[in-house]
Simulated scan of single mutants.
Amino acid sequence: MSRLARYALLPLIALAAPASAAMTVGTFVQRANALRDMGFAAMLAPDFQVLKEEARVAKQQVRAESAARQRAGKKPIACVPEGETIGIEEMIDGLAALPAADQRRPLKDGYAKVIARRFPC
């Protein structure tokens, strides 16, 4: 394979990264805002499913970490009242409002900070 062909494939390889590759907060926000700008057409974009899965995995990781903290007798990450949730728009806005240092952290960490701010213990 020629050097030029390899360089042409780099963007495709980056897009094919699995959800377990720990997308950063900043990357998630950037890509989510691009989808927001598309309106209803965003649901047809390939990135929609990618970001949906990233959000699902981050939420699952935060729940598991919170449960482990509770089992260890530590303070939970957040105290979400029964039946309360954070909508995706509020989550994206919360992630976007995080400081620059947090924008470089994994999405799971940003998600935890947003829910901790919204539902402090």
Rank of each mutant, 00 (worst) to 15 (best):
L4D: 08
S2P: 08
L4S: 14
I88Q: 11
Q61N: 13
K108A: 14
K59V: 02
G87L: 00
L10S: 03
M1D: 07
P99Y: 10
P11A: 14
A112N: 09
T24M: 15
A72S: 04
R3G: 07
R3C: 02
L35V: 12
L35P: 01
G26Y: 04
V25Y: 03
Q103S: 05
P76T: 10
V57K: 02
A58Q: 04
R31W: 15
A78L: 01
Y111F: 06
L4Q: 07
I13M: 15
Q60E: 11
A5Q: 11
G39T: 13
R105H: 12
N33Q: 09
L10M: 11
M43G: 00
A42L: 05
D109E: 14
Q60R: 10
E54M: 09
A8G: 10
C79R: 11
I92G: 02
A22D: 07
S2E: 09
F48V: 06
D93P: 05
R63L: 05
V62G: 00
A8T: 09
A67W: 07
E89T: 07
Y7R: 14
V29S: 10
A116D: 06
A97F: 13
I13F: 14
M38Y: 11
A112R: 03
V29F: 02
I13T: 15
M38Q: 15
A45H: 07
R118W: 11
R56K: 06
L4C: 06
V29A: 09
A34K: 12
R104N: 08
L51N: 10
S20W: 00
R104K: 11
L35G: 04
A42W: 04
L35C: 02
M23K: 02
A45Q: 07
A22F: 08
M1E: 05
C121H: 12
A96V: 07
Q70E: 13
M23Y: 01
V25R: 02
S2H: 13
E54Q: 10
D37M: 12
A21H: 05
G94W: 06
Q103H: 05
A100E: 12
A96E: 03
L98M: 06
Y7N: 08
P99D: 04
